[in-house]
Amino acid sequence: MTRRLLLLLLPVMFLGLALFFYVRLSEDPTGRDSALMARDFPAFEATTLKDDQRRVDQSLLTGEVTLVNVWGEWCPACRQEMPQLLSLADRGIRLVGINYRDTREKGQAFLDEFGDPFAINIFDPEGELGFELGVIGAPETFLVDAEGVIRYHHKGYVSPEDVQGRLLPEVAKWR
């Protein structure tokens, strides 16, 4: 009889795991933080969107609180969040773009059409930096503090409510 009871522990243990999955599932995926939280922005070396001779690295993101936005011309949601990003830039917040899996021509055309809130754009045509950051799809936005440490991660589209409710408070918190 004890053996049967012991064996019944197996389904109970599994149900525990299933419960955990359930909790995990019901968490808001946009609020879920990446494993990079509170870590240094990953080291990288890349050219910029405008200038294929200019090489930049992670030191680009130190000295000032910066919002890093991952975007691409091919991404419809990126278009829709441009007005919000422009309004953030108008408030004096430094934005750096990562042009993700895109070409220089298309990326440039996108900025010409929808406006350019970015101080500079890192060119990531192969998605290598995006991979380091654990990006699963554009748009995504990271907040990097003055020491170059990732402090906040927003997955998906930034709505006007997100600007007021999430991004501005976070920027204020880390400044």
């Binding site: 049967r4 064996l7 599994f14």
Partner: peptide, 10 residues
């Protein structure tokens, strides 16, 4: 999984 483990235990 739960059903099969219960069947197994019993």
């Amino acid at each position: 999984v739960t059903l099969s483990l219960v069947v197994f235990a019993l």
